[in-house]
Simulated scan of single mutants.
Amino acid sequence: MAGNRQAARLRDLLARGEFILAPGIYDGISARVADRMGFPALYMTGYGATASMLGLPDAGLATYSDMLGRAEMICSVIETPLIADADTGYGGLLNVQRTIRGYEAAGVAAIQIEDQEMPKKCGHTPGRRVVPAEEMAVKLRVAADARRHEETLIVARTDARTALGLDEALRRARLYEEAGADIIFVESPESEAELERIGREVSKPLLANMVEFGKTPRAEVDRLKKWGFDLAIYPVLGLTVAAEAMRQSFAHLKEAGTSVGDPAPQYDDIHGLMGFGEVWDFEKRWAT
């Protein structure tokens, strides 16, 4: 099973102490572009998936079926291990079991669930509320037990920092470690000092969210490694860059009445990126 092999590959990289740098992907094009770049992992962002599927904010509006379908599509066009956002697990304990098994079957290597109340909200927006820590710990035990392959990784995210403070977020991180999470994700710390403290107090592999326009200061890989982090995701980097490039191109088209002289760069091998070469080879082989 491809997802099983990719999960084993991701586990091996973490065990060997290799830092995992994972750009955010959200659709087939972003997946294909990133897959060609040689990253150790990719990250399916809930923000980007919701925006690209529905044109709506990441506010609990994408369903389990929406996100599973997006994960299945992405896994079908990449070879790189995928870390995928699964929100809160989409409900109670049975929902969590179904989510883990569905994502795992789709080929996801590492599945992220968070301790927000439903409907969840984007991690760097106001008004987030979290469930009791012990309730989330049970979810994580269910998630670990639901795996059909021991290689599949469970990422536990806590959103407690914003509403309840860093001490509570770290208490939850330790509880989630004990509950069976393989990777810990403390969302939206607000200073470099907080990042350093998280690195000191979390013992399992630790994920940093280097989100554009967020609450957390962005730091380069060398400093994240020094502070004790093992993974870094850049969930909306590709999305924001693509949106701005489109805005520039469309503005030029409206003003100039032509695409000639467009200031935005063009991807000059879009046919190759999308796999048209394979289509043409197939047609030549089976031409009558």
Rank of each mutant, 00 (worst) to 15 (best):
2 A>D: 07
6 Q>L: 14
7 A>C: 13
9 R>M: 14
14 L>W: 04
15 A>T: 07
24 G>A: 06
27 D>R: 05
28 G>W: 06
29 I>E: 12
31 A>C: 10
34 A>I: 05
35 D>E: 09
39 F>C: 10
41 A>W: 02
43 Y>H: 08
47 Y>I: 14
48 G>C: 07
48 G>N: 06
49 A>C: 11
50 T>S: 11
56 L>H: 13
57 P>V: 13
60 G>W: 08
63 T>I: 13
70 R>E: 02
70 R>I: 13
72 E>F: 01
82 L>C: 12
83 I>G: 09
89 G>L: 09
94 L>W: 11
95 N>F: 03
97 Q>A: 15
97 Q>W: 05
97 Q>H: 11
102 G>H: 03
106 A>M: 06
109 A>G: 08
117 E>S: 12
127 G>P: 02
133 A>G: 15
135 E>T: 13
137 A>S: 11
139 K>T: 06
142 V>W: 01
143 A>S: 10
145 D>C: 02
145 D>G: 12
147 R>V: 07
150 E>W: 08
151 E>P: 08
156 A>W: 04
157 R>D: 04
159 D>Y: 04
164 L>C: 10
168 E>I: 13
168 E>K: 15
170 L>W: 10
170 L>V: 03
171 R>K: 11
175 L>N: 00
179 A>C: 08
181 A>V: 10
183 I>D: 00
185 F>L: 07
188 S>R: 04
192 E>S: 09
195 L>D: 01
196 E>I: 06
196 E>Q: 13
197 R>P: 04
198 I>E: 02
198 I>R: 00
200 R>T: 10
200 R>K: 15
212 E>D: 14
214 G>V: 08
215 K>F: 13
216 T>P: 01
216 T>C: 06
218 R>N: 10
220 E>T: 03
222 D>E: 14
225 K>I: 15
226 K>H: 13
235 P>G: 00
240 T>S: 12
246 M>V: 14
252 H>N: 11
252 H>Q: 08
253 L>V: 14
254 K>V: 12
257 G>S: 12
258 T>D: 09
265 P>D: 04
268 D>T: 13
269 D>A: 05
272 G>H: 06
273 L>P: 01
274 M>L: 15
274 M>Y: 07
277 G>R: 06
281 D>H: 05
282 F>I: 01
284 K>S: 09
285 R>D: 09
